[in-house]
Each structure stands twice: as structure tokens, then as C-alpha cells.
Simulated scan of single mutants.
Amino acid sequence: MKRSLLAIAALQLVGCGADPTATQNTSAELGGVNTSPEQNRVTTSRNEAAAALLPAKVRDRGTLVVGGTIGSPPLGFVADDNKTPIGIEIDLATLVASALGLKPDYQVTSWENLFVGLDSAKYDVGFANITVTEKRKQKYDFATYRKDDIAFEAKKGGDWKITGGKDVAGKTIAVGTGTNQEKILVDWDEENVKAGLPAASIKYFQSPSDTYLALSSGRIDAYFGPNPNVAYHVKVGGQTETIGKFSGAGATLQGLIAATTKKDSGLVKAYQAALNAVIADGSYAKVLARWNVANEAVGKSEINPPGLPKNKQK
């Protein structure tokens, strides 16, 4: 029970910052993953072709200023010292910086302020599980690096599976506010009500521990969140299971997560080249395998591919 409660307390929802006073799990409690501040990160070497695509001011500065969020294992959270950022997003940002011949300057912020920082050019790039959407493409450029999958998590042992919108009718489900999965869930609920099905009860919680305590007590039927978070919590906690998984861009399009930069900043081609370089040299695959998300790998990085349609997002 102790292990499960610690795992719950450590897990955060996408777009939320970690509580710096929270007790972090040991590596044993996080499925054997190294959560010490002394990370044995996967490394790569400078790729000259990618580095040559950088604007001179960034290349001369020698650093890549990365905006990101922490608090959601395994995407981004804090190590056992309660201050060192670790996780998939940090590792991939570090790889890209190295391929560009730059030192990563990872700056932790909130989900909302991440985009403010990109708009003002405070950050060169955002690595924070950011989904490509048609609306966001109006303001940002994207270089993709991972599939965007979202999943439902429920207590283990039930016979309820979610294969589509009708399966949430009459259920109580927690979701993160302002996320793509919230919009998908709301759209499903509206369609169900129009069809005469019972409405879902959509719940929002201030902290991940509140969400998972509600799930364990039966006050909610499921949590709908990013697949890496759900898969990680299922593995660590041992008391829940994934009951449905979907693309974050809807039923007709595979969603994609991308390195995000201010539109027309002149940086996106360098990010794409760096990502393709680390995909080719195998270091990218090692990072994803390290965090148990190898099934979300992409074969190449794309610039501004089709994303979640405007009529399916906020």
C-alpha cells in the first residue's frame, strides 16, 4: 500500500507543475527507473549538418533554452533531490541540444507560461508533451518526435472497456482541464446526449493525488490522460489498468508530439534535422526504451504535419 500511495502522490497531470515540497519516489518505487539527480542520460554527438541550420545568434550563444513542465512521470518530473528535472522530455531535449552542439538550458515553467515564453522568445523550444494541432500551427512551428496517444485508466479487475464515445455514457470520468483529451471527452458526451444516452459526469481535480484517491475510492470510474502517464502509473501502482487507448488527434488521424517553437523563428528545420540525426544513430530509441514508451516512436521527424482539427479542439 505504501508503494501505491507514493506512486499516486508523485504522478501529476500534463500541464501542471510539480509541488517542490512533495516527497519523491525512490528508483525502486518507480519501477526500477533511475530517479536520482545523477542521471545516466543517453548521449549523442554534434551533427554538423543540423548545427549549420541554426540561426547565428543561437549557435553563438552556445545554449538551447528549453521550456518545459515537470510533475508527470515519466514525461517530466523531479529527481530524488526534489529539484533536478528528469524524464522523457528532458532526455529528448538534451539529445537535440547535443546534436546541435549546444548546452541545454532547461527552464521549468507552468503549462500556460510555457506558451507565453515561446511567444516572447524567452524559450527557443518547448519540450512538454505538446500535441500538434491546426490551431496551434497558426502561432507555432513543430518538429515531431513521438506519437500522441491518450488512454483511460480504471481500477483493475473490471469488465468495462472503452472503444468509442458511447462507452463513456453515464460514467464519471476525471480529465485535465485545457487538454485535448478533455475536448475529445466533451465532444463524445455531447454526441451521446444528442443520441439520447446518459450524460457523463466530467470531474476536475486540483492534484493528481486527489484524482487517484477518487479513483481508488470509487468516486470516479476512470481517468483520461496521456498514455505515457497512464501506462507508467499502471506499472508502478499495480492496482489499475488501461481500459482504452486512442490517438490524441481523434479517430481519423494519428496524433503527434513535437518540439515547439515560435512560428517563423528560423529554428524548426534545425530541430527536425537534429531529431532525425538522433533517430538515425539509435540514441532516440534508447531514450524511449529507457522510459518504456518505445511503442510511441516515430520513424522520422516531420515539420508541421496535419494535426488535431480546429473543430476538435479549444
Rank of each mutant, 00 (worst) to 15 (best):
M1D: 15
A18N: 11
A18G: 12
D19S: 06
T26E: 11
T26A: 10
S36Y: 01
P37R: 12
E38A: 14
T44P: 03
T44C: 14
S45A: 15
S45F: 03
N47L: 08
N47Y: 07
E48Q: 14
A49W: 00
A49S: 13
A50K: 04
A50L: 04
A52I: 03
A52V: 05
R59C: 02
V66A: 03
G68F: 00
G68K: 10
P73W: 12
P74R: 06
P74D: 07
G76N: 09
G76F: 02
F77V: 02
A79F: 00
A79C: 01
D80L: 06
N82I: 02
P85N: 09
I90F: 05
V96I: 10
S98W: 03
L100P: 00
L102C: 06
Y106C: 00
Y106S: 06
T109P: 00
S110A: 10
E112N: 09
E112A: 09
N113L: 08
F115T: 04
G117N: 07
D119M: 05
A121Y: 08
A121I: 04
A128Q: 07
N129W: 08
I130S: 03
V132W: 01
K137T: 11
Q138V: 07
Q138M: 11
Q138C: 02
Q138G: 04
A143D: 10
Y145D: 05
R146K: 14
R146H: 04
G157W: 08
G158K: 10
G158R: 11
G164S: 14
G165E: 09
A169R: 03
G170Y: 10
K171N: 11
T177P: 03
Q181G: 12
V186K: 15
V186L: 13
D187K: 13
D189N: 15
N192P: 10
K194V: 15
K194F: 06
A195L: 01
G196R: 12
I202Y: 01
K203N: 14
Y204L: 07
Y204I: 03
P208Y: 11
T211C: 00
S217K: 14
R219T: 12
D221C: 00
A222K: 06
Y223W: 08
G225R: 09
P226V: 12
N227R: 13
N227P: 01
N229Q: 15
A231G: 12
A231P: 10
H233V: 08
H233R: 11
V234D: 14
V234G: 09
Q239V: 15
T240K: 08
E241H: 05
T242K: 14
T242M: 15
I243L: 07
G244M: 06
K245A: 13
F246I: 13
S247I: 12
G248F: 05
G250F: 01
L256I: 03
T261D: 05
S265V: 11
G266S: 09
L267W: 08
K269R: 12
N276D: 15
A280F: 08
A280Y: 06
D281K: 02
S283F: 01
W291N: 09
A294P: 01
A294F: 01
N295F: 09
N304Q: 09
P309K: 11
